[in-house]
């Protein structure tokens, strides 16, 4: 069954903060790790509460983000949403690693020298 992944964006990179993101990417990923669809959604205002509601309403299975407050991290985990935080890098590189099942918290995917 396909899964929906949400990535808060800052331009074409993973946003450094969940609570300040004004743009999110919603990607549908198949069981085989293929990207089925991709949507970019603009939010009318930045809000961690609002984004949590958005995650739940859209049946998001995983959130890939830079920084997220403890309270929201545990709330999403309690709602059985996978949260991979402290992630940095261009959104394509991050999604690609996630689809390959290799993305871990703290991964930095900038430039040629990507750290993990």
């Amino acid at each position: 069954m396909a899964r929906t992944v949400l990535v808060p964006l800052l331009r074409n990179e993973v946003a450094p903060r969940f609570d300040l993101a004004l743009e999110v990417l919603l990607a549908r990923i198949s069981d085989e790790g293929e990207e089925i669809s991709r949507d970019i959604i603009l939010l009318d205002h930045a809000s961690a509460d609002g984004l949590c509601d958005f995650v739940l309403k859209n049946d998001v299975a995983a959130v890939l983000v830079g920084g997220i407050e403890e309270e929201y991290y545990h709330y999403l985990r309690w709602k059985r949403v996978e949260v991979v935080d402290q992630v940095m890098g261009p959104v394509d590189a991050v999604l690609e690693r996630f689809r390959a099942g290799r993305l871990a918290p703290g991964d930095i995917l900038y430039g040629e020298e990507a750290w993990s």
Partner: peptide, 24 residues
């Protein structure tokens, strides 16, 4: 920021600092 100095060098400052001013 939880990032060692050698890893932080070269990264966008907004990703390292993550302040409210960095984004907007």
């Amino acid at each position: 920021c939880g990032i060692p100095r050698e890893r932080a060098v070269g990264l966008p400052c907004a990703q390292v600092l993550r302040s409210g001013l960095c984004v907007h």
